[in-house]
């Protein structure tokens, strides 16, 4: 067990943790807008960490370059996708869920 493999394992583990947390969040949060939060953030970071782990495993090569491109693409595209879904829902008039105190709107 090399030291590099341990680092790769740590990246994969933390990334999987965030991906699972995002999935639990999407199932558990009470309304559509709050569900966007785990989908837009935890999912992005989790996937980026897993792909970074693969990059460290691979070292410097063309494969790493492709993985890096996928990471950049995920960082641009994932928030954009959740934003476009949010905007579509907002324009269609989906009401945000309020807590008992009643959030301002």
């Amino acid at each position: 067990m090399e030291i590099r493999e341990i680092i790769v394992g740590a990246f994969l583990g933390v990334g999987c943790f965030f991906v699972v947390v995002a999935s639990i969040g999407v199932v558990r949060f009470p309304d559509f807008y709050t569900r966007l939060h785990p989908a837009g953030k935890s999912d992005t970071l989790g996937q980026a960490l897993i792909l970074s782990g693969l990059m460290i495993h691979e070292g410097v090569s063309v494969v790493s370059l492709k993985l890096f491109m996928i990471i950049v693409l995920i960082f641009i595209v994932n928030p954009a996708a959740s934003h476009s879904i949010a905007k579509a829902a907002y324009l269609a008039g989906v009401e945000p869920w309020k807590d008992k105190e009643g959030g301002r709107s």
Partner: peptide, 9 residues
Amino acid sequence: YDRALAVNM
């Protein structure tokens, strides 16, 4: 929209 979000994820 929930479904679209889930499918995207």
